[in-house]
Simulated assay, not measured.
Amino acid sequence: MNVALGTSGIAGLYQAVGEEDAQAALQAAWDLGIRRFDTAPHYGVGQAEERLGRFLRDKPRESYTLSTKVGRLLVDDPSAVDGTDSFFGVPARSRVRDYSAEGVRRSLQESLDRMGLDRVDIALVHDPDDHMAAAIGEAAPALARLRDEGVVTGFGIGTNDAGVAERFIRETDADTAMVAGRYSLLDRRAETSLLALCDERSVSVMVAGVLNSGLLADPRPGAPFNYEPAPEWIVEAAQRMAQACEAYGVWLRAAALQFPLRHRAVDAVVVGPGHADLVHDTVAQLRARVPDELWDELAALVPDQARLP
């Protein structure tokens, strides 16, 4: 199954999630055949890695693929405000940006310590948009050395900005790119730039944020797009897509989840449900049949990309 379970949802993104619910979501994903997991120190200030590590600790290491991210170090902080960066019910810690070679090695080791594991498969430089000099000049070479040493199998970048990812791929020896929100039914901005480059260089692509912060799950007025309330014209575009899907007896979220996998550069879709019932629904939508005719109709409904916020 070309799907990875992202772990922001089990770490309290937008609403607190208890340990029992988080473990139930992970178990549901495993039972449904998901064997790829993506996490990061950023998610729940370490809570995602801790919970995922507890789940994976008794699983044979060769039975799953794991990616985490570097670029944010965590420090204990009794004054930390719950809900910072939209994560709730999390430990009292703060994030400190560090894309230096030393910071990358420290970040990776601390992630392994939190998870109780001895290695990850992929390390991604996380959101280096305002730190590209360090990301390219220090983080990437450090990760390349870790790859050569066998500490990681590969490395790459994880970001919401297709241009940032494209630059990183052009200027480093990365194996992987994860882009969130920029290759979806509504937002195709990564297609002719990043995805084309990755296809040319045989760099694998993981696409996250395929529901565009929730708009493609529930296209109602006021729904979020790119983490902000969506402009009316974008909501209307999503509603037209939903109507096209309804005519074929298909849920909009099924088309949204499956769409990125139609591109040959895309290796996996990353999904982040935080509860077991949402995991079941996500996998069901990924397995639903979407007629070719519907894909053609949806392509004709793509909004003006130049207007997207």
Score class of each variant (00 low, 15 high):
1 M>R: 11
3 V>P: 01
9 G>H: 05
12 G>K: 11
14 Y>C: 05
16 A>Y: 14
22 A>Q: 11
26 L>H: 07
28 A>L: 01
34 I>H: 03
36 R>I: 07
40 A>S: 15
43 Y>L: 09
45 V>K: 14
45 V>N: 12
48 A>P: 02
51 R>G: 06
51 R>I: 05
51 R>D: 05
53 G>S: 07
53 G>N: 08
54 R>Q: 10
61 R>C: 07
65 T>C: 05
67 S>A: 14
71 G>N: 05
73 L>M: 13
73 L>T: 04
74 L>R: 04
79 S>E: 15
83 G>V: 00
83 G>R: 07
84 T>A: 15
87 F>K: 05
93 R>W: 04
95 R>Q: 14
95 R>F: 10
99 Y>H: 05
101 A>M: 04
101 A>V: 00
101 A>L: 03
102 E>F: 01
105 R>L: 08
111 S>N: 03
112 L>K: 05
112 L>A: 07
113 D>W: 01
114 R>L: 04
114 R>D: 02
114 R>G: 02
118 D>Y: 07
118 D>W: 07
119 R>P: 00
119 R>Q: 12
120 V>R: 10
120 V>D: 10
121 D>G: 14
122 I>W: 14
122 I>P: 06
133 A>P: 00
136 I>F: 06
138 E>S: 09
144 A>H: 14
144 A>T: 12
147 R>Y: 03
157 I>S: 02
157 I>M: 02
158 G>W: 08
159 T>C: 11
160 N>G: 07
161 D>K: 09
173 D>Y: 06
174 A>R: 09
175 D>T: 02
175 D>Y: 07
176 T>C: 11
177 A>C: 13
179 V>L: 10
180 A>W: 09
185 L>F: 06
195 L>E: 06
197 L>M: 08
201 R>I: 07
206 M>T: 12
206 M>H: 14
210 V>W: 13
213 S>V: 09
213 S>Y: 12
218 D>E: 14
223 A>H: 14
225 F>M: 11
226 N>E: 13
232 E>H: 12
234 I>L: 15
234 I>G: 12
240 R>C: 04
240 R>G: 02
240 R>F: 03
248 Y>E: 15
249 G>D: 07
251 W>H: 13
257 L>Y: 15
258 Q>G: 13
260 P>D: 12
261 L>R: 11
264 R>C: 01
266 V>A: 03
271 V>D: 04
275 H>F: 10
275 H>Q: 14
279 V>Q: 07
283 V>A: 08
283 V>I: 15
286 L>M: 15
293 E>Q: 15
295 W>P: 08
296 D>L: 10
297 E>I: 01
297 E>S: 10
300 A>M: 09
306 A>M: 08
